[in-house]
């Protein structure tokens, strides 16, 4: 073990040259945090950024995100600039000021953030309310059922009604959703087993989200949609895809060992393509 020689160390009470340390610390704050932080954020936009948006609610969420980014970004830069400046100045002064109260100043910096936050709250509340508006008449209704570790999709069929399900009837191979054969409404239900969730571009979707076992979360990054699937309840999720193509469902709530492979696939297509696909599906009739 090397012997640290304490006797030659500078007195800990008065560390050597406060100007130098002040300069170092304010430079690190300035270069690493302010310049580095801003530069990295700008650079990240080309590679590590929001996946291209593909839903109507996503556009609104992104707008709110950018507004918040600008507001917090300005605060981030300003506070750190002030911190660096005061640290730099603090290393050079010979005496400290005896100054500890200024009611006007304090009220200013209480009320200013309050006003800014109130604005953000109001904007958020509007978007939040719109996202949770009841599903429109023409919405495509589909059931998404999560389980360890995959997704099942069920369409109500021609009668527009989902058949009854009974957990006791669940059989992993023959009847994965536990459809009740005694319920006529279930005879024409379409269960997409292991396949994609098919959606129609620019047509609202009303997902009825359920879970078979534990908590999962229905996350489609491009749609900016995320909703936990809670066993015991059916949760509505409403959104409108705006771009045709293939997307992925990621499970975003820890659900066990296979959480990281719980992927589902989505195909967004035209109404005609969707109709053709649906017509080719066999009714589930157990």
């Amino acid at each position: 073990m090397p012997r640290w020689n304490f006797t030659t160390m500078a007195d800990p009470i008065t560390p050597p040259d406060p100007r130098r340390t002040a300069r170092q610390l304010s430079l690190v704050i300035l270069l690493m945090i302010v310049v580095g932080g801003v530069a990295m954020t700008l650079a990240a936009r080309s590679r590590w950024w929001l996946p291209p948006v593909a839903s109507t609610q996503g556009i609104e969420i992104d707008r709110l995100f950018y507004t918040t980014l600008v507001v917090t970004g300005i605060a981030f830069v300003l506070v750190h600039l002030v911190l660096a400046l005061f640290v730099w100045m603090g290393g050079r002064r010979q005496t400290a000021a005896y100054w500890h109260d200024n009611r006007t100043l304090e009220l200013t910096y209480t009320l200013t953030p309050a006003a800014i936050l109130l604005t953000l709250v109001s904007m958020g509340a509007v978007v939040w309310g719109r996202i949770h508006a009841p599903p429109p008449e023409n919405a495509l209704v589909v059931e998404v059922r999560a389980e360890q570790f995959g997704w099942f999709f069920r369409y109500p069929g021609a009668d527009g009604t989902f058949g009854r399900v009974e957990p006791a009837l669940i059989n992993a191979r023959r009847n994965p959703l536990g459809l009740d054969p005694a319920d006529p409404a279930g005879q024409d239900d379409i269960v997409a087993r292991g396949g994609d969730l098919h959606l129609v571009v620019n047509r609202p979707v009303h997902v009825r989200l359920r879970s078979k076992d534990v908590l999962h979360s229905f996350f489609v990054p491009q749609f900016r949609v995320k909703q936990d699937a809670v066993p015991g309840v059916t949760i509505p999720v409403v959104f409108t895809p705006t771009r045709a193509g293939n997307f992925e469902i990621a499970c975003a709530e820890l659900c066990g060992v296979g959480h990281y492979i719980m992927r589902g696939k989505i195909t967004v297509e035209s109404q005609a393509a969707f109709d053709a696909w649906l017509a080719g599906q066999q009714p589930a009739a157990p």
Binding site: P18, L83, F86, T95, E106, Y109
Partner: peptide, 26 residues
């Protein structure tokens, strides 16, 4: 977002404490 207000106040108070201070960089 209301809880952010007292948090901001504390931050600004620390900044104000550093203003015109004679800092000992321990």
């Amino acid at each position: 977002l209301a809880i952010a207000v007292p948090s901001a106040v504390k931050t600004f108070n620390w900044l104000a404490t550093l203003w015109r201070a004679k800092i000992r960089f321990t």
